[in-house]
């Protein structure tokens, strides 16, 4: 075999596996979305009818807007907090740093449903710990889930709490990869700690930051468990975001046509977002 084809030969098994487990459901979804669906089975060819129905849905712009607000806020807050935490942990001694890492990562390693339920029981439900503390302090009961704004704020808080551990670990690895010499040289030249962070540390964290931003965006944009368990999309539609809309269309009203169309639109949206991130960061390999 010609040497230039040797590489292709090596990647064929992996590519075949990827095609099978990753791309085939997408192709099937595209095909499925082009048909009228009755009782879970594709019947007659519908062309782009499912997509047209989706675009004509008056609730979709609101859902999209809430998804952007939720994802944007959750990702921004997580990155800022995790960066601060990572820098702090990096400066701690090995043993204390390890202990803090363990505490921070716990929400990330437990299942999303369990983590969200814990949050709901402890902080939200008025028979939980937070409610008891508020009552002990002689304050009125608080019902954070009953206001559209505070319900969205809680949803963002849970998402940050759940995912911050992952971001901290990745950024910490990035920090550990920066040679100490750079910081030392800057300090000798008279740079302040803020200047060192802004001019040296932050630029060198570009790759882990990009990775964290991509993963957090995708995981927040596609999370269904958190809003489903925490708020059920309510009150009203205040916390209904796109993945929950897909879930409801598929499992509550059983409209698989529009559910598939929306899921595919989200998939291509995700792909575009990743491309945009990489391009914005001018990431060259």
């Amino acid at each position: 075999m010609h040497p230039k084809y040797t590489g292709i030969q090596y990647i064929i098994p992996a590519f075949a596996l990827l095609t099978l487990v990753l791309f085939s459901p997408v192709f099937y979804g595209v095909w499925f979305s082009l048909f009228h669906i009755q009782y879970g089975a594709a019947t007659t060819f519908a062309g782009v009818q499912n997509y047209q129905d989706l675009l004509a849905d008056p609730t979709l712009p609101g859902t999209l807007q809430r998804s952007i607000i939720f994802t944007g806020a959750a990702v921004s807050i997580t990155i800022v907090l995790s960066l601060a935490l990572a820098v702090w942990i990096h400066k701690l001694g090995e043993r204390r740093g390890f202990l803090v890492q363990m505490v921070v990562i716990v929400p990330w390693i437990i299942s999303t449903v369990v983590a969200t339920l814990l949050f709901r029981w402890v902080f939200v439900n008025d028979i939980g710990l937070a409610g008891s503390i508020v009552k002990m302090m002689g304050l009125d009961e608080i019902h954070l889930l009953n206001s559209p704004h505070s319900a969205m704020a809680l949803l963002i808080a849970v998402s940050v709490w759940k995912r911050i551990g992952y971001a901290v670990i990745i950024l910490l690895a990035g920090l550990k990869g920066i040679p100490d010499d750079y910081e030392e040289a800057a300090r000798i030249d008279g740079a302040t700690p803020w200047q060192i962070f802004r001019r040296i540390t932050f630029p060198l964290l570009k790759t882990p930051l990009l990775l964290v931003a991509i993963v957090l965006t995708l995981s927040n944009l596609n999370t269904v468990e958190t809003p489903l368990v925490l708020t059920g999309g309510g009150p009203g539609d205040a916390t209904r975001i796109l993945p929950m809309d897909v879930f409801d269309r598929a499992f509550i009203t059983y409209d698989l046509g529009s559910a598939t169309a929306l899921a595919l639109a989200m998939f291509f949206g995700n792909v575009l977002l990743v491309l945009a991130y990489v391009r914005l960061a001018k990431w060259k390999t």
Partner: peptide, 13 residues
């Protein structure tokens, strides 16, 4: 329980 029947219908399809 709320996903059981829709999943069955999809599996039937």
């Amino acid at each position: 329980f709320d996903q059981l029947t829709p999943k069955f219908l999809a599996a039937h399809g």
